[in-house]
Amino acid sequence: MQLDWLLQPLLSQLNSGVLVLDAELRLVFINQFIARRADVQPEDVQGKSLFDVFTDVPQAWLQRKLQGVLALQVPAFSSWEQRQYIFKLPHLRPLSSDSQYMAQNCSMLPLTAPDGVSRYICLLIEDATDAYVYQQQLQQSVARLQLANRTDGLTGVLNRSYWQQQLSYEIQRAERYQHPLSLLMFDLDKFKQLNDRYGHLGGDAVLVALCARVTTLLRDTDLLGRYGGEEFGVILPETDLTGAMQVAQRICTAVAGQPMHYEQQTIRASVSLGVAAFTAGQSTDALIQQADEALYTAKRQGRNQAVAWRAVNNEYLKKVK
């Protein structure tokens, strides 16, 4: 049975793109799938260089792949996971994909004409937009979960476990590169009284406003986390004790200087801060302990102030204990 008549309808109805190139990378054939999506007429592009017709393909990269196919006479492949698309073609899911171009799997196959000499390359283009869209959705879900897993539900700053984990990383980094690193712990003054007076929702609102205000005073690389109920910590990479004290003073002034608002009520709040600088060989717990001790001193000295940890504080505390 002669099946030649099958070829044309099959190629034109195939739901994959077919392009055939000669050894000079000129177009010999494109099927309807490609012609319609690229909005070209097959007879207009025949004999033209691939790169003249499809001007926005990654030329150097594709050329090397195709030369490899010709020289080695072995197939080459490209996956959407590594390169989302080769040809800028529209896809049929305009709403569900965040990319305007069709994600593609491409096989580049060596062909030899019946004369046994003439070499060609067949490019098969498969639409992988569905897989791409599903993967995007999955990645977004994973990112959302990761974010939820590391932030404090109320204030949106880092939660304690993630913040402490980051502190260990920063300590390792400071140790390895001998860079400065400081830690700042602060606590909302008289939080219990705030709660009694404005209710727990009022107290919560103050915490949220406090975090928002502190965040505006920090660099992108500083890490603010909720350590306990009303106690927070800030990791300050590349910062020595003097620099950290400046940040602490700024926070102190900013919180006390501007009242907060909750349901038409004006709430005045203040914070006490303790600051400690990392010293080589120190553990995460020891550094937190020092900043906490300085914070305790700030409270003892009348609140609404920042105190840097000093060895004498330590001695003093030991004595009172």
């Binding site: 150097a60 080695l72 006479q73 072995v74 197939p75 390169r83």
Partner: peptide, 27 residues
């Protein structure tokens, strides 16, 4: 194979080299 870091990912390099080694041999 003159791969430069910027125009190909490690994943692409691995799959390229594998397909060359495998298909030349299997053919």
């Amino acid at each position: 194979l003159e791969y430069s870091d910027d125009d190909s990912s490690e994943a692409e390099m691995l799959t390229d080299i594998s397909s060359v080694l495998t298909t030349t041999f299997l053919n």
